[in-house]
Design a protein around this nucleic acid. Sequence first.
RNA 1: GGAGAGAUGGCCGAGUCGGUCGAAGGCGCUCCCCUGCUAAGGGAGUAUGGGGUCAAAAGCUCCAUCGAGGGUUCGAAUCCCUCUCUCUCCGCCA
Length: 439
Amino acid sequence: MRNLQPGNNQVMIDPKLLRTDPEGVATILGRRGMRLDWQTLRDCEMRRKAVQQRAETLQAERNAAARRVGQAKARGEDVASLLAGQERLAADLVAAQQELEAVLAQWRQLTEGLPNLPADDVPDGAGEEGNVEIRRVGAIESRAFPVRDHVDLGERLGMDFAAAAKIAGARFVVLNGPLARLQRALTQFMLDLHTGEHGYTEIYVPYMVNNESLFGTGQLPKFADDLFHIAGDSFALIPTAEVPVTNMVRDAIIAGADLPLRWVAHTPCFRSEAGSAGRDTRGMIRQHQFEKVELVQIVDPGDSVRVHEELTGHAEEVLKRLGLPYRVMALCAGDLGFASRKTYDLEVWLPGSGRYREISSCSNFGDFQARRLNARYRRAGQKPEIVHTLNGSGLAVGRTLVAVLENYQQADGSIRVPDVLVPYMGGLKELAPAAPRAS
RNA sequence: GGAGAGAUGGCCGAGUCGGUCGAAGGCGCUCCCCUGCUAAGGGAGUAUGGGGUCAAAAGCUCCAUCGAGGGUUCGAAUCCCUCUCUCUCCGCCA
């Protein structure tokens, strides 16, 4: 028996809300520059209700008739008369189920691509220009010498794009010696901070995930092009640790007492950058493969707004301790990610290009991902409820490396090691260009 | 890669030749009773999603779900097919 329950049609905005107030949903989605044909949605819902009732009535009749046959047989009675007419009932039922399936398919098609509803306090705006600066932290130094960007600085320290191009292609990098270690030091520092002081549990996860996981966190079905798919398999390389980590709670009912779940994961991330040909082609800013330390929290719905601020603070703390100037941007409705209800981007100052660049994105997804994931929790003695999910980069390691190089450069092109990293660098306080090696 | 076994409710576990099975039994948990504490005992309850009824909740009722998807049948946890995962043995291997 096929399952045709509406609960299985993978709507992500609360289906009750979509059914009861499609016009209200359309208004809120309008803030994202999205036009929702709510009348069609409403009509589809009305048809769904009628068809479902008819189908279920027929099922009930079918079940009752089958039961009578069973009972009669148990009494040793002749069953032939009871079987008469069942054929037509079965045919009606099949027809009704097909109709229901068609209606549900339409509903799915109308709703599956709908992004999350922005929170009320998300600023209006159509795109990046509409984002609002919340605060700036750290002074931007003016320097008495011509500043270099991370490529100029890095290439003399072991950053090798030519080798990466030979081995793999564009948008990859090879890091040699101290730079490789610096990347590892940054990673270790971040992990230690989040596990030691911010209460996260370190978690190691697969770097390849299946389609169910990608659907759960919202990469599929809309953003398949951004992923590297493993040919011949239904796997993709993770574009962010958010995918495997958040999917930890897919189809789970968590005891209320176990919330919040706080995970920190260090993983490589793989992105096809399909839509960004020609953008950021120089340097390490936009790579097919980069390291990231990711923060994920699974929380009680009542806590997510507060936790979102906290989690953003956890990511900011990395920048503060590294002494990197940054600003916090509240994304406007038009620039919000598909699954997000509210997002803060952290942008670090990059002297080499004289601008702020995104280094972390901290989002509250509300119940949107959790509903796709069927991730719930249960307060003692209560019915299960949908959890809220959040995540944020804490931080993107590759871009942090860039930021450290550019912000800690000295007149001679050497790099001072930030104090908090010195222990992770084996006591090394400075990265100085070495004589070029034969290659 | 080869051979075999399995997947049932929070957990363990039974489901005979398909028929009243959403599922025996046990454990756990919740509530009540009883015993002066402890231990034990008695009773009731205890999956999830959806629809209807209801102002709402409770309740009642209907539908679906026994790894997933399809099929056979008046009727499938039970039969058939496909897939996924787990376990055991062999091979290979960090």
